[in-house]
Simulated scan of single mutants.
Amino acid sequence: MRIAIAGAGAVGRSIAQELLAAGHQVMLIERDRAQFDPHSVEQAEWVHADACELSSLEEAGMELCDVVIAATGDDKVNLVVALLAKTEFAVRRVVARVNDPRNEWLFTEAWGVDVAVSTPRMLAAMVEEAVSVGDLVRLLTLRQGQANLVEVTLPEDTPLSGRPVRALDLPRDAALVTILRGGRVIVPQPDDPLEAGDELLFVAAADVEQQIRNALGC
């Protein structure tokens, strides 16, 4: 895929390196001369321009991109980039970084955002996940709140130990997608037994999270 990243700071460069390693074409757009450093990510295409200016995006060939990532440290800039990418260039997928959690409510389809990534909220979720056993932790919101990626670590005294996955009485709008066990990533099958210490990852609608807790005995 061809992917454009607005913002070539530490976050933008790190994303670019990961995507390049995965075989994608990456274009980094940066207006600040101090941040414009093509040698830091040599495989990427670098564009010295303001990603909030329509003419600059046209010259950069934004219409050829499959994905746009608004990764600057300014939420206002990220919203403008997202809106231009979606409305002016019909980019199929727009991902935007949220720097201030108070602004999350703005990062919706109305502003062209398909996926909003809140760095503070994700860090808080990672900390909570690291210290919480036996409780449901929301890791990531998907599709503007339509679903969440949630995790629970089964405690040592879980009544589910030894029971198969099919014994979980999950609600309709929830799916167990992965079991993390030690160093293994397990794609759950109906007859796979659950074990204490398993990390269970679910994709679920927000309004059924309590039902998941009930099914797990949380």
Rank of each mutant, 00 (worst) to 15 (best):
I3E: 03
I3A: 02
I5K: 09
G7S: 08
G9I: 05
R13G: 02
R13P: 01
I15Y: 08
Q17D: 11
A22Y: 07
Q25A: 14
V26P: 04
M27C: 12
L28Y: 09
D37V: 10
D37L: 11
P38F: 03
P38I: 00
V41L: 07
A44P: 02
W46T: 05
C52R: 14
S56A: 15
L57W: 01
G61Y: 11
M62E: 03
D66Q: 15
V68T: 13
I69Q: 02
I69E: 06
K76N: 14
V77Q: 03
N78M: 06
L83F: 13
A85P: 07
T87K: 15
E88I: 02
A96D: 03
P101S: 09
F107W: 01
F107M: 03
A110W: 13
W111K: 01
L136H: 05
L139K: 12
Q144C: 01
Q146R: 15
N148Y: 12
E151C: 12
E156A: 15
G162K: 14
D169C: 01
D169R: 15
R172E: 13
D173F: 12
A175I: 12
L176A: 10
I179Y: 03
L180V: 12
L180I: 14
G182E: 08
G182V: 03
G183D: 13
G183F: 06
R184Q: 13
R184V: 04
D192G: 05
E195D: 11
E195T: 10
E195P: 02
A196C: 10
D198H: 02
L201T: 05
A206N: 10
Q211D: 15
R213G: 06
L216E: 06
C218M: 14
C218R: 00
